[in-house]
Amino acid sequence: MSSKFHVTATEKSGEAQLEFAGVIDEDVDFTQIKLPECKVYTFNFAGVKGINSCGIREWVHFSESLPAAAKLVYQNCTQIIIEQINMVAGFFRAGSEVQNFYAPYFCESCDREQKVLITAAAVQGLAAPSVNCPECKAEMEFDAIEEQYFRFLKANA
């Protein structure tokens, strides 16, 4: 599968929706995205396969270039995006909110990992929500360190 970056941008009633796919790197030119000024920007990261340090810098510049009063909503964040949000200051601008994100779960009896899309609201007091295995229906284990993986929730707008 190619890692070339694609973005699909739409706008409706002052709300922008941006869908990303591929790798966010130095070649990503967010200035090419032409949108009117919006109150809400929703980013869908489901198709993002990777990011590098120059891509992180491009992202920080892009998010800072959006109106200061705008709300930035992150959807379908993959694990690598959650890691960057947790690790790099500025990746998650003030006024940003992760709405939902992928989290690793593991079913011992099936010996299988499952990436589960969970909402930020479902994480209560840094406890991962309970999720059952789609195969055997047993409860799966959350397969990351809660304090580490959910660190970004402290900054969630």
Partner: peptide, 18 residues
């Protein structure tokens, strides 16, 4: 490997090569 390993390997290889 866990599912996101491919993304992490890609990131590492990219940083080292760059």
């Amino acid at each position: 490997s866990f599912g996101a390993a491919e993304d992490f390997l890609r990131q590492t290889a990219n940083e080292l090569l760059t």
